[in-house]
Design a binder for these strands. Sequence first.
DNA 1: TGAACGTATGAACATACGTACAGATATGGA
DNA 2: TCCATATCTGTACGTATGTTCATACGTTCA
Lengths: 134, 134
Amino acid sequence: MAGSLSSLDACEVRMIDPDRVESVRSSMPIDDDINVLSDVFGLLSDQGRLRLLISLLESGELCVCDLAAATGQNESSVSHALRLLRAHRVVQVRRSGRMSYYRLADSHVRLLLDLGLEHIGHAVTVRMHDGRRS
Amino acid sequence: MAGSLSSLDACEVRMIDPDRVESVRSSMPIDDDINVLSDVFGLLSDQGRLRLLISLLESGELCVCDLAAATGQNESSVSHALRLLRAHRVVQVRRSGRMSYYRLADSHVRLLLDLGLEHIGHAVTVRMHDGRRS
DNA sequence: TGAACGTATGAACATACGTACAGATATGGA
DNA sequence: TCCATATCTGTACGTATGTTCATACGTTCA
């Protein structure tokens, strides 16, 4: 946990260009927002979770065991990962009998994934389950 | 480190919808790309680094002590963080005398930051140091 | 040349994090 | 009711990660 920016009185800190520093600090999001943002990126920073999210991005909706098969992980790991993603409202569950079907639930994350995939030169394949792209 | 997907022979794994699983697996980026991508997100997943990058996004170029002042971190932490970011080609240094001036060096990361800031409802302020936005 | 300064680095430490194993829960069918 | 299936959960363990402290490096100026 970092020191809160808002309660920092600029003492004890050397600066070269105080005006610019002040400008940057005034436009810096508040601690809570920085926290939310770093958390979101943190959710995308694990290979296993990333594979899960990419799978859901491509396929729209998948059950746990299919996600495990598609991403090459055991079902326990997948379940743990999905729990985390669920807690952060990144994915959404639909339960049907003893099956659980997961889908992406956050459009911002979808965009981040798209951008990320583009970053590595990966064309996102056709999909039109509930969202965009034809 | 996760088990490589490419060398997974689909045995021992139960599936509900094999066709869809195969479709997802065939469109999954290779291990190396997944790795690169999760690394990038990982770099953005720390509050301190995120503050640094946002500062550079807003201000264009800043020296280490100004970055420390702007983000509320001590200079050692900042230097360590910048080293990491430098190693991943996310930032770039310009040395002038005993000062080091850092700037963003990856347009993809810039876009991810923009998207992230938009995600938390933070309007990116005017900047036209070397890049976009008027 | 030596001291002050800005920055970079190494090592040590505490903690967070992902993973695996065991077991629990819940649903469906014989 | 009993068992198999699909998913979920708790715990424990090893590793990765961020932070701090001390110190080293290179530059500027007296």
